[in-house]
Design a protein around this nucleic acid. Structure first.
Length: 585
DNA sequence: GCCGTTTTCGGCCCGACTGTTTTCAGTCG
């Protein structure tokens, strides 16, 4: 387990090289190749540095011999020679210029060659002096646009992203409002990354069918969530909410709903790959229909399934549309039947008033039973949680009794006495084995010392995985979506250890976490790891947040069979490491 | 630079919008 460059660091270097080539005037396909390669590296479930050293990075789709060579140079010398050469020629400030809307690589090059501009400060100065409009191809409007963007600080400000629950709630509120005002037969659907159940979204896409398109587009402005509607017409409207979220409403003819919904659900990469594959069959896909070269006619589709069928593909669920192999699978009938929330029969991670939860064992049990669960593990934090809500060994012994009593009193659901045990920095746990052995279920998590190095953190995690009384690892990477990076961890090594020891890995369904993420969960399941989906609920109303974990599981291509807690209690009980250990011998 | 149920070379999605232009280039999603 050598500690070397992370996939993220390699991907960043390839991205930068792509940016530099673009500013150098390379053909767009070459630039796209670097960006595709960077994405393949970032999403690889194993260490790409390791792969490259074995000459196997070329196995990643989008990485060829040239990129592998550049990755190796980066590993050996800390830099890529081609990037060094380009950096000597292209001022670093030019990349900054392309952050302004309407200013891409071509214009950045033009401004550099014509006016010698190499920074945002120089750009501002030239715009104030009225020199931008003197460049052939640029004019007064462009100059005004640049100044206004600079005034608003567009280049520095990162657009806020909405976590999925908020995005869907907003999308559904807008859809309901439009349906109410659109009259009979109006249909409004949430599309875009929200429909694909991504971790977070940048803006909202709505697709509608109505008999009165102009009226519907104008009625968007009347919704309480909407602040402004800069444009509205028969085809749709663009708007901004009071919270600053961009909303794009597109209106389809019923016969074209499938085409438009498919297009606006994306992802962009899925659509690009879909269209490239279609072109090889003489078909041209757009949001309006599918043009057939052979007949010269355009076919429209009322449903998305029809669009995929026209291309010879099985229907692809929105969650899979990320250009991660779904087109090949749809062509060969290999799209899995994705897990649904109703498949889950138990929740193995929740908290009560014994630690930092808000409700009692009984309240959690009744709420879980109401959701249709057959079993629930009570897993309060362990002794050293450190937020004043720790459970001492004696308190845990008492808690075990309380869970047993509740289990005896409450019918229709099996209650497990468990704990979410801290993994200490050295990989040990903070209860004695004698006490852990009295529990029905142990999930181990990292809650402290996030900033240790990758090697130490990976060893820490693997030590916990190898502990015979640890059934599962909770929120394995510690990330908080858009807020906190995962801790440095060799996830490939963690997956290997989990598969080897029969330790389950959790998809924590808290919508701030969704950890494991979709890519890691897919890799873990492929490696033979049993996946768990848990709510980590700290109150009865949060148990239903399990749906966000299911969303991640679906994006990870998981079917019910890949997820341990879709099993009955009898089957699940046998899958626990402690039971396997005693029956395997 | 990558890639192949037409190819190891010659392709590499599609359309809207904008601003600058007399037919289009650049940018964006």
């Amino acid at each position: 387990m050598a500690s070397e460059l992370s996939n993220a660091a390699i991907a960043e270097a390839l991205e930068e090289l792509g940016d530099l080539y673009e500013l150098d005037g390379a053909i767009v396909h070459r630039v796209v190749a670097y960006r595709t390669g960077a994405r393949a590296v970032r999403e690889a479930p194993v260490s790409v540095a390791g792969l490259a050293r074995e000459g196997r990075a070329v196995e990643l789709s989008g990485v060829g011999a040239t990129l592998q060579e550049k990755i190796l140079a980066l590993l050996h010398t800390g830099t890529i020679p081609a990037a060094e050469k380009l950096r000597a020629r292209i001022p670093p400030g030019l990349i900054e210029l392309t952050r302004l809307p309407g200013l891409g690589p071509k214009r950045a090059r033009l401004l550099h060659s014509e006016l010698g501009i190499e920074s945002l400060a120089a750009l501002r100065e030239a715009a104030l002096a009225g020199r931008l409009r003197t460049v052939r191809g640029l004019g007064a409007k462009f100059e005004e646009g640049v100044l206004s963007s600079l005034e608003r600080g567009v280049a520095e400000r990162r657009a806020p992203r909405l976590l999925l629950p908020k995005a869907l709630a907003l999308g559904e509120a807008l859809a309901d409002g439009l349906i109410e005002r659109g009259g009979a037969g109006t249909q409004v659907l949430v599309a875009g990354s929200a429909r694909r159940l991504a971790d977070s979204v940048k803006d909202l896409d709505l697709v509608a069918v109505t008999t009165k398109p102009t009226t519907l587009a104008r009625s968007l402005a009347k919704l309480p969530e909407i602040e402004s509607v800069p444009s509205a017409g028969r085809a749709g409207a663009k708007a901004t909410t009071h919270s600053g979220v961009s909303v794009d409403l597109r209106i389809a003819k019923p016969a074209q709903l499938g085409n438009l919904l498919q297009h606006f659900t994306g992802s962009g990469k899925h659509n690009a790959a879909l269209r490239e594959a279609a072109v090889r069959r003489g078909l041209h896909v757009s949001e309006y229909g599918v043009l057939d070269d052979a007949t010269g006619t355009t076919r429209t589709c009322a449903s998305e399934a029809d669009v995929y069928a026209l291309l010879g593909l099985a229907y692809i669920e929105p969650e899979l549309r990320e250009s991660r192999g779904e087109l090949g699978a749809a062509a060969t009938g290999a799209i899995p039947e994705l897990i649904e929330t109703a498949d889950l029969r138990g929740d193995l991670h929740c908290h009560t008033v014994a630690s930092d939860g808000r409700d009692t064992i009984e309240q959690m049990a009744l709420a879980a039973r109401e959701l249709g669960y057959e079993y629930l593990a009570i897993t309060d934090h362990s002794a050293s949680h450190g937020f004043g809500d720790d459970v001492s060994p004696d308190q845990l012994r008492r808690q075990i009794e309380l869970v047993r009593e509740a289990d005896a009193q409450i019918d229709g659901i099996k209650l497990l006495a468990g704990s979410e045990v801290n993994i200490l920095p050295d990989g040990s746990l903070d209860y004695e084995d004698e006490l852990l052995a009295q529990l029905d279920w142990v999930i181990a998590s990292v809650h402290t010392a996030f900033s240790m190095g990758e090697r130490a953190m990976t060893e820490r995690m693997i030590a916990a995985i190898e502990h015979p009384l640890v059934d599962a690892i909770g929120h394995p990477t510690g990330r908080k979506i858009d807020r906190r990076a995962p801790y440095a961890l060799d996830v490939g090594a963690v997956i290997e250890a989990a598969a080897r020891t029969g330790t389950m890995l959790e998809i924590n369904a808290n919508p701030d976490r969704r950890d494991l993420n979709d890519i890691h969960a897919r890799a873990a399941a492929r490696a033979g790891v049993s996946i768990l989906i848990d709510s980590d609920a700290h109150g009865v109303e949060r148990l239903s947040e399990i749906r966000w974990g299911v969303a991640t599981a679906r994006r990870a291509w998981l079917s019910a069979d890949d997820v341990a807690n879709t099993r009955s209690w009898e089957e699940f009980a046998r899958m626990r490491k402690r039971t396997r250990a005693s029956t395997d011998t």
